[in-house]
């Protein structure tokens, strides 16, 4: 249950950006923060099941592309209407230029 899964290469994601990662029938979003750290959350917005990876990253916030619901992608906290359910987050590490995410 604590397997680390390779999601992408570290350089695949620009700073202050996000990328979609699908694995075993589920979808995740991988983030690279402006200070060059990596994070991962569930990939779908808790409001209407929209892919967050199509949204905009500003500082430590990911904004849903559909209705502008906002989450702190580092903690998963919902940041105001219309979202009220937090996002699940996953541990991430970078190893030899690869971004690994711990699922389960």
């Amino acid at each position: 249950m604590s397997d680390w899964v390779e999601a992408c290469a570290a350089e695949d994601i620009d700073e202050e950006d996000v990328m979609r990662f699908d694995h075993a029938g589920r979808t995740y979003a991988i983030y690279r923060s402006p200070d060059d750290e990596y994070f991962a959350t569930d990939g779908l917005c808790s409001h209407e099941k929209v892919h967050l990876a199509d949204g905009l990253v500003m500082d430590d916030i990911i904004e849903c592309p559909k209705h502008n619901g906002r989450f702190n992608y580092k903690t998963g906290d919902a940041r105001g209407a219309p979202v009220c359910v937090n996002l699940k987050t996953y541990p991430v590490k970078v190893d030899a230029g690869k971004v690994l995410i711990q699922l389960g």
Binding site: D54, G55, K66
Partner: peptide, 8 residues
């Protein structure tokens, strides 16, 4: 949502 980010 191809245009969402740029529209934002």
């Amino acid at each position: 949502n191809a245009v969402a980010r740029d529209i934002r």
